[in-house]
Design a protein around this nucleic acid. Structure first.
Length: 496
RNA sequence: GGCUCGUUCGUCUAAUGGUUAGGACACCAGAUUUUCAAUCUGGUAACAGGGGUUCAAUUCCCCUACGAGCUACCA
């Protein structure tokens, strides 16, 4: 049985890169009918942030990444907080001390600093010099008894070469001589990531460790730790990093990195999941499908399709995914609840209601029609809804320089004539027949009657009715505005 | 500095020991005989460089360059 895990540390927010790591672990587990569990890595007292765990769990829930074991849901390997598992670590590390694969270190941070500086000056790799391995058992006992602060370090088998067989990167070779004796137990009695992670992954029967590339270089330490314990290590898969536009590791400095930032900006979970899934993974063999729901991702996922190189987080593509999903969700819902104008308006309103002028909600009919005419724009950019709809609800001022456009070959005289003729024509349409087709027919009649070009009719009417350089098409605008308002505005236009 | 990983259009990526190196986003142009958008059609644009191996290399090997990650009593 395949078991994967996502082990976040509660430092405040969920990084989009972490979400992707969690997603890949989730997908791999689900695809293989295995288990996915969450473990909270809260061993660093200094970095703990209040409420971070709740935030994290709710983000996972929001994304739809359900887990089989972990905080809140529990499970056979509880507790799922490392801060509550310290006894396990202490007990296990004793075995290492006994078999000589770990040792006490009493060095002060001053001595370590000094040592490192010297090494750097001599251009050597900064590594612990094993100063404390010279103490006898008796000396160690005495130091501990007299409460000299200590850490426990891993004794790296320096004579060994480790060949890691990474599921994504293939064979990677490490020389024990350049790997530092890692601190396993900190002086505050908490384990470091390296120790706790290995013990927990073993204890929780994790079969596949899927994590970011930043862990690749410390993997030999972990594997040698498994060896020291006499345990079989899991399989490792190091996934590529998410990058800033300048190809450095995606960081706060250069934009938003927290999932909640994107949620706040209005991106849907479908879009975010879809987008990050495809950053560094491809379903394979010339497949050109790009829109994937979570279940579809589960179906399509495999570790073989994960790349080695990092991927730039390109917000423009995210925007596109978001738009695609917004449209898709609207159409799907309409199919269920019926494709009526009211239903469409309701769904569009859900997208943009908070950005709307409250007054506009009063005229439900006008609003429904108006929303329909700017549907593409709203689904792309709901925050701008006010700009798009403004002219429907507020009578625009008449802008002569906009209406009388040289390019459109419209002058004042033509504008007057057209407004009068259009008003007269539209008036003859009965209210129940006031459809886009009828409106179009009428305006085309005006074209022939006045012997002008299409643009010379359509432009002044549209520009006059909206007061805007850009807007939906004339027929839509007239339809949405309704007969009464249209005629009113056209009357005024005659005075231009 | 050391160790490790990586490198196909601007971006995400596909494919291949012999191809006009494909798609998507973005961009540009045309059409939609009214604007913006949407849509449709078309277009610009990539195998980091140098050596090998080979009849043939973007593909396999080596080197170089460039980029990135790690190098904490952080994860």
């Amino acid at each position: 049985m395949i078991v994967t895990r996502f082990p976040p540390s509660p430092t405040g927010f969920v990084h989009v890169g972490s979400l992707r790591t969690a997603l890949y672990s989730y997908l791999f587990a689900r695809k293989n009918k295995g288990k996915f569990l969450i473990r909270i890595e809260d061993t660093d007292q200094k970095r703990y942030v209040e409420g971070a765990v709740e935030n994290l769990l709710s983000t996972l829930k929001w994304a739809g990444l359900e887990y089989d074991e972990g905080p809140e849901v529990g499970g056979p390997h509880a507790p799922y907080y490392q801060s509550q598992r310290t006894e396990l670590y202490k007990k296990n590390v004793q075995d290492l001390l006994k078999n000589g694969t770990a040792y006490y270190c009493f060095c002060t941070s001053e001595r370590l600093d000094e040592m490192r500086q010297g090494q750097e000056r001599r251009k050597e790799a900064p590594m612990y010099d094993r100063h404390c391995t010279k103490f006898s058992e008796k000396e160690i006992e005495e130091k501990i008894k007299s409460e000299v602060p200590y850490v426990i370090r891993q004794k790296i088998p320096q004579e060994k070469i480790l060949i890691l067989n990474d599921l994504i990167r293939g064979k990677v070779r490490f020389d024990g001589r350049v790997i530092d004796d890692q601190v396993l137990m900190k002086s505050d009695g908490f384990p470091t990531y390296h120790l706790a992670n290995v013990i927990d992954d073993h204890d929780m029967e994790i079969t596949h460790v899927i994590r970011g590339e930043e862990w690749l270089s410390s993997t030999p330490k972990h594997i040698w730790l498994y060896e020291a314990f006499g345990w079989t290590p899991p399989q490792f898969a190091h996934i590529p990093l998410l990058l800033n536009a300048d190809r450095s590791k995606l960081s706060k400095r250069q934009g938003d990195v927290a999932v909640e930032d994107y949620i706040k900006k209005g991106y849907s979970k479908e879009a975010i999941i879809n987008f990050i899934a495809l950053l560094g993974w491809h379903p394979g063999k010339g497949i050109e499908k790009e829109i994937y729901s979570l279940p579809e991702l589960v179906e399509a996922f495999s570790l073989e399709g994960v790349h080695k190189a990092g991927a730039i987080f390109d917000i423009q593509k995210l925007d596109w995914f978001n738009w695609q999903w917004t449209r898709r969700k609207i159409e799907e819902k309409l199919e269920k609840i019926g494709n009526t104008l009211e239903n469409r308006a309701k769904l569009l309103l859900e997208l943009c209601e908070e950005y709307l002028e409250k007054d506009w909600l009063k005229d439900k009919n006008l609003l429904a029609r108006a929303l329909k005419t700017v549907e593409e724009k709203i689904t792309q950019n709901p925050k701008e809804v006010r700009v798009y709809l403004q002219f429907y609800f507020q009578e625009p001022e008449i802008k002569k320089e906009l209406i009388c456009s040289e390019k459109m070959k419209v002058d004042t005289e033509i504008a007057k004539k057209v407004s009068a003729a259009a008003g007269k024509k539209l008036e003859t349409i009965s209210p129940e027949n006031f459809t886009e087709e009828e409106i179009k027919k009428s305006l085309i009649e005006v074209v022939t009657e006045l012997g002008l070009k299409n643009g010379q009719i359509f432009w002044p009417v549209r520009a006059g009715l909206t007061g805007e350089q850009f807007s939906p098409g004339v027929f839509e605008v007239i339809w949405a505005l309704g007969k009464e308002k249209t005629l009113e505005r056209l009357k005024k236009l005659e005075q231009i």
